[in-house]
Design a protein around this nucleic acid. Structure first.
Lengths: 155, 155
DNA sequence: AATCTCAAGTCAATATAGTTGACATGAGAG
DNA sequence: CTCTCATGTCAACTATATTGACTTGAGATT
């Protein structure tokens, strides 16, 4: 459960660029790190980590999602989901109840405490993004979105 | 050593947005995935994975880097470096020799085979980026860089 | 020469994050 | 009464990382 994430030698290393786009590769790497660093530190203080956050994030945006649907969204196996989800349920951050009509599936929801933690963790990430967008200006924001969509939807 | 990375339920899940910037968080996530997906598949075919690529990438850009310096750049412990680096040396993708004047340190270099694999893996990533930049246009590229630098250098 | 320091290597234990395979349970549906 | 389906669970395995303790080999210091 990763403790307070120690040194985190986070200074973007200055490497020689062999290709034109090397800087872009490194920006993706350090960008991801920059966005998640504070959120991960916050989560670690709560005894949680990135997979727990992913679960909380999805359940917050799909209340009453069933286990199977959650597995699909997360793209992991049910065995991999098992531990982190059970921890969240035991810590009363997530509730699980059977569907009234479809008794086969379980419906997941965040408790108030779960919502609070999800919101705070995601806030750390959103704050990083907001500050970056503010600094770069609103037209840059639209351009950033266009580029990221092209990357995300590549093939 | 992650085999051929199976289904990869990679369709950007459509989640309700609770906040303005949720889309940006998801774009970072799927952007990282989009950039690394093909490179990871290529690396897996070579029996390698992301940590090996990181080592190859850094050594390619800092020939004759010492182990200690490499550890600093990568931000991991020497025990964590040990396995992947030894695999690369055993597979003759990386050479390690003692420094002529400073016999204490070892200097790392890529072999021709190591350079080839590093280049091909990184090419997969650069291709994704190049296509995205081409689609979005050159002014968008500059804006993307500005935003990513702000994110990476946050605090 | 004897010792101190420093880079690197190694051994062990642990945590986390994921996999596949096999099997159990409980509820609807036929 | 059985079949299917969603869920749950047990086991074994892989990979990536951690910390702590210790060794080795070479240079530098006293």
């Amino acid at each position: 459960m990763a403790k307070t994430s120690q040194a985190a030698g986070l200074h973007r290393a200055s490497l020689d660029k062999l290709h034109d786009l090397d800087a872009a590769l490194e920006l993706m790497y350090y960008g991801w790190r920059g966005m998640t660093l504070e959120a991960d530190a916050y989560l670690a203080k709560q005894g949680l980590s990135r997979p727990h956050h992913r679960i909380l994030y999805v359940v917050a945006r799909r209340p009453d999602i069933a286990i199977g649907a959650l597995l699909e969204v997360l793209g992991i196996s049910k065995q991999a989901l098992n531990r982190p989800l059970n921890l969240l349920i035991e810590s009363k951050l997530v509730t699980s109840r059977r569907s009234p009509e479809q008794h086969r599936s379980k419906l997941l929801r965040l408790t108030a405490a779960g919502q609070r933690i999800e919101q705070r963790a995601s806030d750390h990430e959103r704050n990083v993004m907001r500050q970056a967008f503010d600094r770069a200006g609103s037209s840059s924001t639209a351009a950033w979105i266009a580029v990221m969509e092209a990357i995300a939807d590549h093939n």
